[in-house]
Nucleic acid binder design. Structure first.
Lengths: 212, 212, 212, 212
DNA sequence: CATGAATGAGCGTTCATTCAT
DNA sequence: TATGAATGAACGCTCATTCAT
């Protein structure tokens, strides 16, 4: 669940592996600063200040800025892909599952937009940022593609659609709609608005634009 | 002294205010460097070197880095939105026009991927980058939304779909599929592959996923 | 609170004020780390790790980094100057005593090169490092100068030679020859090689280069 | 002569390869700061300030601190080894040449002690600092060893002495005597004192300590 | 127009030192 | 004693921007 590349997971006990409170604070603060200012605009000093923590402590818990932000991304992506996996493994038709994905993401957006905005930042020059991020992205696409495949084999979805391309398109549509809300191009201030946008986005993704 | 604004080539008029060759070289080089390295990775020195131009000359033609890159974005977006406008104003059904959009973008991608990758970079922290870029993005969405609206009034497209949301979703899907090709997640090496991906993406966008 | 000074083992007295085992471990580790990496390359964390001791404990026994390394130097220099004093006070001609100095140092070098390398580090910007080190260095030169003086009064050595300068020259020659071995410029891998180098160095120091 | 790893030597012309004045100023200032404070105590800001130059300019001419100080060392060593080579190739007995070496170094010390002090700093943890420095040191020893060899073949010097060891010992003696003057252990304030010390050091090096 | 040397603010990182337990 | 988390000053390096020629 929690990333913790470092900081020793206790093998045996349950209550031992407690993540240091300040480490969590740093990670938490980093999500917001990162979401607000992006990779380069996000300064270590900002994160430390937002976490109410001394500058140097960031480097006590993370080797450097890259590792810190990679942990942030990994954590948020883990939450997202775990949700995708749970939805995929759950009951319901493929259409229900796709609607469920939108439901999950838009819900999180309502309460913790930074978490979503961080996901949107993943895409960066050089394709995706070094290392694990690309795989994570690939994994997310794969999980959605699995749902599509399942729907096709059940006769619910278009059999001709390439699952990977369909999944990518679907996620991209969702992403830009969210981005549109983030920048105010698509109305998403009130909860009701967000819900309406979500329903529209789901309808377009599943039903397509063509009348019929 | 001389504002760089005056260097804009006069669109309609006589060929008097010819854009200096080196200014063009800088802009051209900037597209590639920007596409390759992103906003922060793109250094003025890189651009100057790629343009085979002296360092200081960049500052002769552009007030600063932001203005340079804004020009780059504006230019590429202008090409794109002009194409959208032309397609929208042209003949054919709404579906044809949407397919035409994909056709245009994927064609450009085949010959000048940097031009497309620059568009993909537009989305950045702080919503969209300063100034005109946001409007440009809004304009592109608006043009696609117009096509959707037209299709709805002609009875070709789903009347319940919100044109703006539909347009955003459509562009987002296209964008992420392109990104997928850029990073190699979606196969797009050969021309045939690119064409196949394009067709798939169009089908999903227009026809949706639901079996019909 | 507790000044680390009190940790010095009582030289003459009863065995009451036993030096804590961990203090010794730190000092021991510091010799090696210091010898390997020099003053600035030697981090407190390195010493603590090498001593298998907690970070903070170093600061329990030593006020700060400077004091720690001063203790290291003082200890190694004490060993050296004690040997010089013993040799000086012992029997034999001045030439024998000088040979004895080389014998002692080269022997230590064979079994504990770090101890010697630490001595070689003493010389540092700002003349010699703060505090006692300079005096220690002065004392070593003085002890050798005493041997020279003694030899002169016995009619064994050149009466015109300035004892201090001669002593300094002699130690400098020895030092650089050792440095040469440390860096591999002078062969000093096997015991036999080291012995040969020692003999050569002694001969040059005592007999000079001039044929006769 | 001048190092200039970078900054393009003009192949043809003579007056073209002018070293930029500010580059020289930086190098010059670096000699002094480096000599005063040593490698780690020498901050780029100090050098820039001493050179009356903007901080960033140091990085215009040198890739980083290491390269700057390597250039400093290389330059000073080049001066020294060139002198050694000239002395070695010149006329006179081996003893004259050795005396000439001392003469050169002590003369420089009188007018530009920093130049000598920088040479003394070369010896550093890890044997000698990275790269070229070790070779330079080796070259200096080699040049002196050549003089020794020549003297031996002419029947002027002890035939049994190992030239490399003798050369190392000789340079080491000279070095520590200089160090002694630098730190005030050996009197070297007035010119007369310096000359006296030099004569003593030469006598000890050539004649040895044994009464003959 | 064109050049590239010169400037300096900004930021990532290190590491000696302190402190609560 | 002993631990290691917490602190923050210091410094190397980058790079956008300016300026003299």
């Amino acid at each position: 669940m929690t990333s913790s590349r470092q900081h020793h997971a206790a093998p045996g006990g349950a209550s031992d592996d407690i993540e240091p409170e300040k480490r969590r604070a740093i990670l938490h603060a980093a999500v917001h600063v990162f979401a607000d200012k992006g990779y380069h605009g996000c300064r270590i000093a900002d994160v430390a200040r937002a976490a109410h923590v001394a500058y140097g402590l960031v480097y006590h818990y993370f080797r450097n800025k890259d590792e810190l932000l990679e942990n942030v991304l990994a954590e948020q992506w883990a939450i997202f892909t775990n949700a995708l996996a749970a939805i995929g493994a759950g009951p319901g038709s493929a259409a229900d599952k796709i609607a469920g994905i939108f439901g999950f993401v838009f819900d999180v957006y309502k309460t913790a937009p930074s978490a979503i905005r961080v996901l949107l930042l993943t895409r960066t020059p050089q394709g995706l940022r070094a290392g694990s991020t690309r795989e994570t992205f690939e994994r997310a696409v794969g999980l959605v593609a699995d749902i599509v495949r399942q729907g096709q084999s059940r006769g619910e979805l278009q059999p001709e659609a390439d699952p990977t391309i369909a999944a990518t398109s679907l996620l991209g549509g969702m992403e830009l709609v969210l981005s549109g809300m983030v920048i105010g191009l698509v109305p998403g201030t009130s909860e009701a608005e967000v819900d309406r946008v979500r329903r529209q986005a789901v309808d377009v993704a599943i039903g397509g634009l063509r009348k019929g």
